[in-house]
Amino acid sequence: MSKYQVDSNGFYGEFGGAFIPELLYPNIEELRDNYLEIEKSAEFQQEFKALLKDYVGRPTPLFLARRLSEKYGAQIYLKREDLCHTGAHKVNNTIGQIILAEKLGKKRIIAETGAGQHGVATATVCALKGLDCIVYMGEKDIERQAPNVARMKMLGAEVRPATSGSKTLKDATNEAMRDWINNPEDTHYIIGSVVGPHPYPDMVARYQSVISEEIKNQLEGLPDYVIACVGGGSNAMGAFYHFLDDEEVQLIGVEAAGWGVETDKTAATLSLGTPGVLHASRSIMMQDADGQVIEPHSISAGLDYPGIGPAHAWLKVSQRATYMAVTDQSALEAATEVSRLEGIIPALETAHAFSVLKDLNLKPTDKVVINLSGRGDKDMDTYMKELNLR
């Protein structure tokens, strides 16, 4: 087994596990005891692959971005997850989890969302399968991601605001976990990233690993770099997954520095965080000396999270991957550049990944794959305001 994959106890090195209240044990045990057997079954794989192909639109293209390549002096490829149904990579995971939920006999689905893409992807698969859907979303994120909130409601989901704390992703996750504790029998919680108690980080990574599996099939030889933005870390883990043991491939995760890592308006967990337990998993998180969560900030709702998936914490500590932090302003500049050079408006999350190109010492022979994790439709209000496009 790879030293970068989860062990039998649900840990990646020193990170991971399931630090859960007693009331959640039945839910987690049911998942842990069944997810691998269900996922490996021919019935699951047949439906999963068919829906990824005919519903999501996979495989997504690996596009050689010629003008970006010319500017940065390397061969830059874009993995076009923005072309997935619903506009982001999130649907890969919700397809997998909705099939799993059905196999477990669950009729009610809950989820948390920040940027709204996971909420839309969850509402989408619930509509497809005819299951009840409740999405928890921070009150602040509901305001800044209004188009995605409207999509969720049109798809039949109930959107419940989280009004405590910073009113963002962390608080939405808290509310979803409370719901799950109170409704263990009929409810499945579709976590949207590689966070939370085991088996979620491994389960979500497996469903997202289709990204790196396709990159390996689409690219001649191995890439020199694979780059992805990181909030909780699902699109990055999906892009990294099949390259973890290819040590010659440099894996780069890009976090949100917000106003700067030296300020108190940042979400750069791996730059500033320390080990701790957040949302039932031991990882690296932003916390004060008393262990209280430090509220994060990012212009991007999907990166506005004070923790990181335990697999990413282990990749950082083991030095298998490099993590960089990019400010709001740099992300906006990168979004403008990609839009004008390649005719692709990226999600604000994804724009962070593009921003590090200028900081790499690239050679003409280097093959660089950037996971273009989502499209920018949902962020147009922010772009209009920040870039004076009105």
Rank of each mutant, 00 (worst) to 15 (best):
residue 178 R to P: 01
residue 149 V to Y: 09
residue 170 K to M: 15
residue 163 T to L: 11
residue 174 N to S: 07
residue 182 N to D: 15
residue 142 I to D: 13
residue 162 A to E: 13
residue 171 D to M: 06
residue 175 E to Q: 14
residue 184 P to G: 02
residue 143 E to I: 15
residue 179 D to S: 14
residue 171 D to H: 07
residue 180 W to S: 04
residue 157 A to Y: 08
residue 166 S to Q: 11
residue 156 G to N: 11
residue 170 K to R: 14
residue 182 N to I: 00
residue 147 P to Q: 02
residue 156 G to E: 13
residue 157 A to T: 06
residue 159 V to A: 06
residue 163 T to K: 14
residue 145 Q to S: 04
residue 167 K to Q: 13
residue 147 P to D: 02
residue 176 A to M: 09
residue 182 N to Y: 10
residue 175 E to F: 06
residue 163 T to I: 09
residue 155 L to A: 03
residue 168 T to G: 07
residue 177 M to G: 01
residue 173 T to I: 15
residue 175 E to W: 01
residue 167 K to C: 13
residue 154 M to A: 15
residue 166 S to G: 12
residue 153 K to G: 00
residue 150 A to N: 04
residue 159 V to G: 08
residue 161 P to M: 08
residue 167 K to Y: 09
residue 175 E to S: 12
residue 150 A to E: 11
residue 149 V to G: 09
residue 177 M to I: 14
residue 167 K to T: 11
residue 144 R to P: 00
residue 164 S to T: 15
residue 146 A to L: 12
residue 176 A to I: 06
residue 146 A to H: 08
residue 143 E to H: 02
residue 181 I to S: 12
residue 176 A to V: 06
residue 154 M to T: 14
residue 173 T to W: 06
residue 161 P to N: 09
residue 184 P to L: 01
residue 168 T to A: 11
residue 177 M to V: 13
residue 174 N to Q: 02
